[in-house]
Design a protein around this nucleic acid. Structure first.
Length: 553
DNA sequence: ATTCCATGATGCC
DNA sequence: TGGCATCCCTGGAA
């Protein structure tokens, strides 16, 4: 099953890693006293320390006072932040996962706990009654059955720092299986042939700021539409790199933030021959796909002045359009009567809706990702849409440095239940704080697999499943990763057994260090942070109170 | 090696 | 409505 397999030894496979930093002794286990204290116990301890100190040196009140103050709430008596690879919530704040007050993430019943002995030490040796709740509520959540899906859970190849800014969107080529398109915060669009790993190109002059969505032309595989925060819809020939602007909402340039138009949502209704793009003022724009000219007037489909971040055309019913945005709604529209306030349904959310997708084959279900840390599924667009059929609590908070998370359907899953979504919150995996990519069975909310690699310590908000192959592409910060199932990878490797049996890591051009494209794994000494020693043999540096989760050499 | 800072969207008041 | 506090990141600079 995915859970176990993910974590099975992969050491021999990843050749890029350097030797490790920490041989710092096996006496690290002292981690224990950091931690399994209840809040009151912690306070007691703090008080004790204070007392002792003030007794010891008759006067030293200032330093003593600074001793234990929470960085988050500034209150004494507890501390929040990373202890090694485990993050301690501030108990004064609502749970970072489910957002409910009264408990912390550690004791949240929605928290997914890893099994197989990789439980954070905190949950052994505790007398805290909360742990009983843990065992009771969470143990049954760990799926006992092998999923019928083949989860791509092993890094097959990667481009490290391919982009010079973070990746914002990914798209697989509709017919060429090994071509991955990626957009970034700078406005660049990359084309990567991940079968030939080193074949990649970046188009930098299509957009001036971040690319929010890309779609291939339904009639010409080489042509790509892109929506950007520069207010333009670009139309680019991937072969030649020549690009034209089909829509420019800022013809007069920068006139201040209140007038600057940005385009977010983008989709193509091939049935009606329309390219649809939505902006940050709540408006929907349409471009005739054949003439590539703007058609009709912009239509207000979300709250005036609010961002429409997502558009999705129904795969079966061409008259249905789904939109979502910052007004906390996902809305279903009839293309035949697109008028303000005339939506067929408004799906309410508690926070901003990052994405809303029809299910890939029948188009009857809807999957949404909201910034209230919940993934929602509506089972039938023909049924009751007043409330979702399911809400899955999942950590995918908004953060300024991250591309917003979007849960995505697996287009290959005929049952239309498997989804993939990156996880914000980190978990302590053998001493490393990692942010897995979650595969969730949306029919029951169970975690099917948590995919991670000890070398990938950054958060991976952008994920895309291949339309035909068991391949996952993910964008983490500036790097791209291709994942395959373990078995699959072995097959591939066997096939080309003459070639190195190693994961190929390729370096992008965007950073100085990586300029030289490394072939294979010959000179492993000079890899950069991303695939350096962090992952392996990590030991929690319990001694160093300063140590953050980034324990570099 | 470590700390700091910028950055931006959001939600609350 | 506008100002302001907030944020379990990330990258780069100090």
């Amino acid at each position: 099953m995915g859970l176990t397999r993910n974590r099975r030894k992969r050491e021999p496979e990843i050749v890029i890693a350097r030797d490790t930093d920490s041989e710092s002794s096996a006496s690290e286990e002292e981690e224990e006293d950091d931690y399994p204290l209840s809040e009151s116990e912690k306070e007691d301890e703090a008080v004790k320390i204070e007392l002792e100190k003030s007794k010891a040196k008759g006067k030293a009140p200032i330093t003593v006072k600074l001793k234990k103050v929470c960085k988050v709430c500034k209150q004494p008596g507890h501390e929040a932040g990373f202890k090694g690879a485990t993050y301690i919530d501030c108990p004064m704040k609502p749970c970072f996962l489910c957002k409910m007050p009264g408990h912390t993430t550690m004791s949240c019943s929605h928290r997914v706990v890893t099994d197989h002995g990789i439980l954070p030490t905190s949950h052994r040796n505790t007398k805290n009654p909360i742990d009983f709740v843990f065992m009771r509520q969470l143990q049954p959540r760990i799926p006992p059955i092998k999923p019928p899906y083949v989860i791509p859970d092993q890094v097959h190849c990667a481009v490290i720092r391919y982009h010079s800014r973070r990746v914002t969107c990914l798209e697989f080529h509709p017919t060429r299986n090994n071509i991955l398109l990626s957009g970034d915060k700078k406005g660049q669009i990359g084309v990567w042939d991940f079968a030939k790993v080193y074949e990649k190109s970046v188009y930098g002059d299509i957009h001036s700021v971040q690319v929010n969505n890309m779609r291939f032309s339904p009639t010409n595989d080489d042509m790509v539409y892109s929506a950007s925060s520069d207010g333009k819809v670009g139309y680019t020939d991937l072969e030649t790199g020549t690009s034209s602007t089909l829509l420019n909402l800022n013809p007069n340039g920068w006139q201040g933030p209140t007038t600057w138009n940005m385009l977010y949502g983008l989709d193509i209704n091939s049935d009606k021959g329309l390219v649809l793009a939505a902006d940050n003022f709540g408006l929907l724009h349409m471009i005739d796909h054949r003439s590539n000219n703007v058609t009709g007037e912009p239509i207000l489909i979300h709250k005036k002045g609010s961002k429409v971040v997502g558009l999705d055309c129904n795969p079966v019913h061409p008259e249905l359009l789904l939109s979502c945005g910052n007004d906390h709604f996902a809305r279903i529209w009839d293309m035949r009567k697109l008028q303000p306030g005339e939506s067929l349904n408004d799906l309410a959310h508690k926070r901003v809706v990052n994405s809303a997708y029809f299910s890939p084959s029948s188009g009857t279900k809807i999957l949404t990702t909201s910034q209230d840390n919940r993934i929602r599924v509506w089972d039938s667009i023909f049924g009751d849409l007043d409330s979702p059929s399911r809400e899955i609590v999942h950590s995918h908070d908004f953060n300024r440095h991250l591309t917003p998370f979007k849960a995505e359907w697996d287009p290959k899953d005929a049952s239309e239940s498997l989804i993939v979504v990156g996880r914000y919150i980190s978990e302590n995996y053998n001493g490393a704080a990692l942010h897995p990519i979650d595969f969730i069975d949306s029919s029951n909310g169970q975690l099917v697999a948590e995919v991670m690699d000890p070398n990938i310590t950054t958060i991976t908000p952008v994920n895309k499943l291949h339309p035909r192959d068991d391949v996952l592409a993910s964008g983490s910060s500036r790097s791209l990763f291709i994942w395959r199932p373990e078995e699959k990878r072995e097959m591939v490797e066997e096939k080309e057994k003459e070639k190195e049996k190693k994961i190929v890591i390729c370096y992008g051009d965007s950073n100085k260090k990586g300029k030289k494209q490394k072939r294979g794994s010959d000179d492993e000494d000079e890899d950069d942070d991303m695939f350096s020693s962090k992952g392996k043999n990590i030991k929690a540096k319990a001694k160093t109170t300063k140590s953050t989760r980034k324990t570099k050499a």
